[in-house]
Simulated assay, not measured.
Amino acid sequence: MKIIAVIPARYASTRFPAKLMQDLCGKTVITRTYEAAVQSQLFDDVFVVTDSDLIFNEIESQGGKAIKSIREHESGSDRIAEAVENLDVDIVVNVQGDEPFIDTESLKKLIAVFKNDTEGKVDLASLMREIKDESAINNSNNVKVVVDQSQFALYFSRSVIPFAREKNVGVRYFQHIGIYAFRKEALLDFYSLPMQSLEASEKLEQLRYLEFGKRIKMVETTHIGIGIDTEDDLIRAREMWKSNQ
């Protein structure tokens, strides 16, 4: 089984333009993320896929592997699918470009899903963490997921799911962590399928997989990703990087 990591890297960012090219203690954020993925030793290969000549040249100048997007894409899955379409690979793991502090244990769990899936029932695997704070549960920026007894996703929503009509029945709420591992076939199917109403309404690409019958295995984690979305995040990331050295 050949397993690769792909890091989608857009140059433009509404909240923090060019964030991936910012300096993180001597190297750019995207280079730090790429190197962390390589150093995890979980993958047979690691690629950055980008729409930006600046990011492409940055990765190549550091001795890394980059793929230039040919088309404009609305989602990360589309960008990754185009990149891997002609690669000899079985499993593709999506690593977030703005999270240089990779949680190796969570990625190991995602990869293990496919290694243990001897009957080929899993199309995708992704992460979720339990949330208990009411404000976090009600926050529409926190995507929630409900699962069946085998931990397969039933639905994702920005709304509160399940709705607590009855209290004290032991319902747990899970926030979806947007890190995926895909079978290559599922990823290419996504690339060829049209957006449907649920995805268009919620603006959640994972709903396209569910709407077309793909099975998403959810893995529980306690990890909270440290993404760089603002200049304050970058300052904190620099402090954390220094403290880890």
Rank of each mutant, 00 (worst) to 15 (best):
M1L: 14
I3K: 04
I4F: 12
A5V: 04
I7G: 07
Y11H: 03
Y11A: 03
T14D: 11
T14M: 11
T14S: 09
F16A: 06
P17K: 10
A18W: 13
K19D: 03
K19V: 12
M21Y: 13
L24H: 06
C25I: 09
G26V: 01
V29Q: 00
I30F: 05
T31F: 09
E35F: 11
E35W: 08
E35A: 10
A36K: 13
F43D: 04
F43N: 04
D44F: 15
V46C: 03
F47P: 00
S52N: 01
D53C: 09
I55W: 09
F56R: 15
F56V: 01
I59W: 01
E60I: 08
S61T: 06
Q62N: 14
G63S: 09
G63I: 01
G63L: 06
K68T: 01
S69D: 06
I70G: 00
R71H: 13
H73D: 04
S75M: 08
G76D: 12
S77V: 08
D78E: 01
I80F: 05
E85P: 03
I91A: 06
V93L: 08
V93P: 04
N94L: 07
N94I: 00
V95H: 11
D98V: 10
E99V: 04
P100K: 10
F101D: 01
I102N: 07
D103Y: 07
D103Q: 05
D103M: 06
T104W: 10
E105W: 13
S106W: 09
S106M: 08
L107D: 02
K108P: 00
K109M: 10
A112P: 00
A112W: 06
T118A: 15
T118L: 15
V122H: 11
D123F: 03
L124Q: 08
S126L: 02
S126M: 07
M128Y: 13
E130V: 14
I131G: 05
D133K: 15
A136F: 03
I137M: 07
I137V: 04
S140R: 15
N141I: 05
V143T: 06
V143H: 02
V145R: 03
V147H: 02
V147I: 05
V147G: 00
D148E: 05
Q149D: 04
Q151L: 14
Q151H: 13
F152I: 11
F156A: 02
S159T: 15
V160T: 12
V160G: 00
E166Q: 09
N168K: 13
Y173C: 03
Y173E: 03
Q175T: 01
Q175L: 01
G178L: 10
Y180Q: 12
R183F: 04
R183I: 08
E185N: 14
E185Q: 13
Y191I: 11
L193S: 06
A200G: 09
S201N: 15
L204N: 02
E205Y: 15
E205N: 12
L207I: 12
L207K: 06
L210V: 03
G213C: 10
R215W: 00
R215P: 00
T221G: 05
I224W: 06
I224K: 08
I226R: 14
D229M: 09
E231P: 10
D232A: 07
D233R: 02
L234E: 05
A237P: 00
R238T: 11
M240K: 15
W241Y: 14
N244D: 14
